[in-house]
Design a protein around this nucleic acid. Sequence first.
RNA 1: GGGGCCGUCGUUCAGCUAGGUUUAGGACGCCAGAUUGUCAAUCUGGAGGUCGCGGGUUCAAAUCCCGUCGGCCCCGCCA
Length: 591
Amino acid sequence: MKRSHHCGELSLNHVGQTVILSGWVASRRDHGGVRFIDLRDRYGITQIVFDSEHEPAVHQLADRLRNEYVVAITGKVTLRPEGSANPHIPTGAIEIRSTSLVILNEAKPLPFALDDTITTTEALRLKHRYLDLRRPKMQELLQLRSQVSHLVRQYLHNNQFLEVETPILTKSTPEGARDYLVPSRVNPGEFFALPQSPQLFKQILMIGGTDRYYQIARCFRDEDLRLDRQPEFTQIDLEMSFVDQDDIMQLIEHMVRLIFKETKNIDLPSPLPRLSFEDAMGRYGTDKPDLRFDLQLQDLSQFAATCDFKVFRSAVEKGGIVKALIIPGGNAFTRNRIDNLIDTAKEFGAKGLAWVKINEEGNLDSSIAKFFHPQTLRDALPSAKPGDLLIFVADQSPIVHQVLGRLRLLLGEELGLIDRNRWEPLWVIDFPMFEFDDTAKRYIALHHPFTAPHSEDIPLLETDPLQIRTQAYDLVLNGFELGGGSIRIHAPQVQSKVFDLLNISKTEAREKFGFLLDALESGAPPHGGIALGLDRLVMLLGKTESIRDVIPFPKTQRAQCLMTEAPSPVTSEQLQELSIRTTVKKPTNPL
RNA sequence: GGGGCCGUCGUUCAGCUAGGUUUAGGACGCCAGAUUGUCAAUCUGGAGGUCGCGGGUUCAAAUCCCGUCGGCCCCGCCA
């Protein structure tokens, strides 16, 4: 019995036809003389009727059906009786009057109900992922993900990109994230690493004349997990030769716009807004601002430098800054709520949080109000209104930005300022090339060490490296970093200068990236690229709150797969063959 | 490495902050019966947990204490 149709496609147009459907019993309703089941497959749900009057034998057999039994059904498509149509499902106008039923497989009672209003713990869903995946919502997300991948392939193929696979077993580069290591049996004591990204290979491909490369690439990072971070994740990875920053950004904008239009009929702005790293940090306190609400950081450093409040003045004298958030309606905040804000600010790294209420009469209401001339403060914060609460952080700028940036997000959430139906993509550009790590007393690369500086900034390599801005760009959507890329360094002298500044010695550089350095000296074209997080993109498009919902078989926060119970101990024979001994005290050896 | 929340029948939740009134309760699911128009079907009946695990306090622990395991969220980390 092969199915003639899917469970989501039958309608009034099919009335009278005899069809065969297969699928799972999603629910059953037994009225004695007549029994109903909802038959579900990937495409939808169709109601099946078993009638004792016309088909007593089939009706009798249907008594055995239980949830998630797998069945094949033959029957005639009929119009539902007057008043019993179900407007909630696409096939709700019709039903199948079954003339034959084959039970293909039975199913044990379920560990959890497969509703879309699922209330069970995620752990249970992950353990029984094969059941969880049957839920229409999960099917929809899988489908969405597939559709996005397909659109990406189609679009890039149409733009002369070659899809190239790069190695999964590759070389460990201890810079950056921790590597997943894979021992090599035939090279005792030596290890492959799983790629954190195909970065070096795609640059090599450009030097190899590939011109345009892409890959939907699995990447691996052995770091701690988060809501939007998994140890293995997928990137839309691409690289192009003989292009500049704008070429790549435009290509990606077109692609992302296409994806949003085709999958969700959403029109993203064209062109996407751009914000410099400096402005993003200054106004939003982060390099991935959520532009769905305003609540910008207000710079009060000038005001602070001349005010009577010592905390503010001395922060500025020590080279720091003072910034504020204007919380609309915050005058109504209770003392308790403000205290909570202060505690939160301290958790985020602030030494304290100053606050001033502007009461309805426009007067300042605060223990520190006496230090300020009300009018001077109002002049410094022209958009503050009676009824608002002002909160201030005074410190070195990274701390001020971090604290206020995170308070901004928190307050945006709490005050309901975020419109869930808005899509606010933007590019963040002109990242600094280096940061100075105070504890390690050395420069570290903000992006990665192959990122090219703006050509006019190259002389600064010799004089003032912290002022160098790069040809790097991050695509940000609703506060999530969707991806980032850059024009790469193709001049070997520039590359080695960068390694010098990063305190990577000639021998070290040779050991780690010798092949790339050789390649750069062998006719490297100017090139650049980008990588977009496919998982995050689908997560946002699918309006689901966790990256785990768009990864069919994700890991828990402890980096474990609850279904397969990976990772797991291996036999001592396996370890011996690999010349490996663990230092774990009580290895729970399986054999 | 650190902080927070959580763990009670298959599921979800109540009971815990006055330890005994709990043979641990409700709902969903499950099992049986009834039921010819439901789609969260309905009605009647039934089975099912010793409260994540270990230890302690106590005459008495789901309830208090300590430890431990697991899940989630966050900080660090993620060039």
